[in-house]
Design a protein around this nucleic acid. Structure first.
Ligand code: ZN
Ligand code: ZN
Ligand code: ZN
Ligand code: ZN
Lengths: 166, 166
DNA sequence: GTTTTACTTGTTATATCATAACAAAATTCT
DNA sequence: AGAATTTTGTTATGATATAACAAGTAAAAC
């Protein structure tokens, strides 16, 4: 079972996801001589707890509740750190941030975003990645980063809408 | 010569691009019983004149200079109309708007964005579109919209940087 | 183990992007 | 002309993000 399919399933113990993600984060930061400070660690945890993309100010509010400083730079600094370390992704079309379950492998974040329930699934697609690099190179363009965000209707919501109209 | 290659070439007469785009816009709106009013038309023209993605407030400033109302809703309404008619695209990762040279054909906007010069090239890639639809469908996901924004170094800027280091 | 250095956080202010709500005007339809 | 629809004007506010500089903290050098 792939992680994305796993996440689609509603009854998994999401705490395991969080624990794994945090452990990976600790390891990666240690390896790279980066400091996963309290606020950065807690920000990452909160992003994972939400289980769907979290806006910067939503995150800031949660941090503030816990006694962290409540000014915007606090949260944007934490987000910048986590983005830089590859521990989270930004979903550009939502201005929101999402934990990455494959932070240990450098990769681009490709997303399926449901218009209805706003769940986001990250997917990995090497074929498309290769095709994009080639396509860009063909125009003399050196690819550095990709924003691939697909919106539509997820399997669950599609079922529901069929049920409703029947 | 494809349009995107054409646009990469610095000596083309961009006025022709603008004229063509505006004619297409007139035709499309007429066909669909949509009204390309003064402010909408001028907004489209200004977006094309900039020749790279234009922010909403940059556009608003230009419109205001010409005597149009200078409050944000003016520009966002024009942008909404133009987006809805498929005459422009929004580049999500830049929060900026770009004229579409293929407004007559329904399509998704795929972009190559240069980190250095901030020029944006729209490209068309049916192979990728098909692969994405299939990939999404495979997970039970019904695809409605795509945000495909690739950043990196364009051919020109790559040349320059090679020249500088030599 | 104290000084130096680099990094991290606090704080205030401001920039940038976008929409809500309702009134007035213009256009189209009957 | 009168009614309905669409577009625009206007004021206010919400949402997202960064600049700039001071204060604190941890790591490195000595
Ligand atoms: Zn990821
Ligand atoms: Zn859904
Ligand atoms: Zn286009
Ligand atoms: Zn360039």
């Amino acid at each position: 079972m792939k992680h994305e399919d796993f996440h689609q399933h509603s009854h998994h113990n999401h705490n395991d996801c969080i624990d794994t993600a945090l452990e990976t984060a600790e390891t990666l930061c240690a390896e790279q001589g980066q400091r996963l400070t309290k606020v950065r660690r807690r920000a990452l945890e909160l992003i994972w707890e939400s289980h769907r993309p979290l806006g910067a100010y939503q995150l800031l509010a949660k941090l503030a509740e816990e006694g962290f400083n409540s000014a915007p730079p606090t949260v944007y600094r934490a987000l910048d750190f986590l983005l830089g370390a590859g521990l989270i992704h930004k979903v550009e079309s939502m201005n929101a941030y999402l934990g990455c379950a494959h932070a240990d492998k450098a990769h681009k974040g490709y997303f399926l975003i449901c218009d209805e329930c706003h769940n986001v699934m990250e997917f990995d697609y090497q074929d498309i990645h290769a095709a994009l690099i080639e396509k860009a190179a063909h125009q003399g363009f050196e690819l550095r980063a990709e924003t691939i965000e697909l919106t539509g209707l997820c399997a669950k919501c599609k079922e529901k809408s069929v049920g409703a109209s029947a």
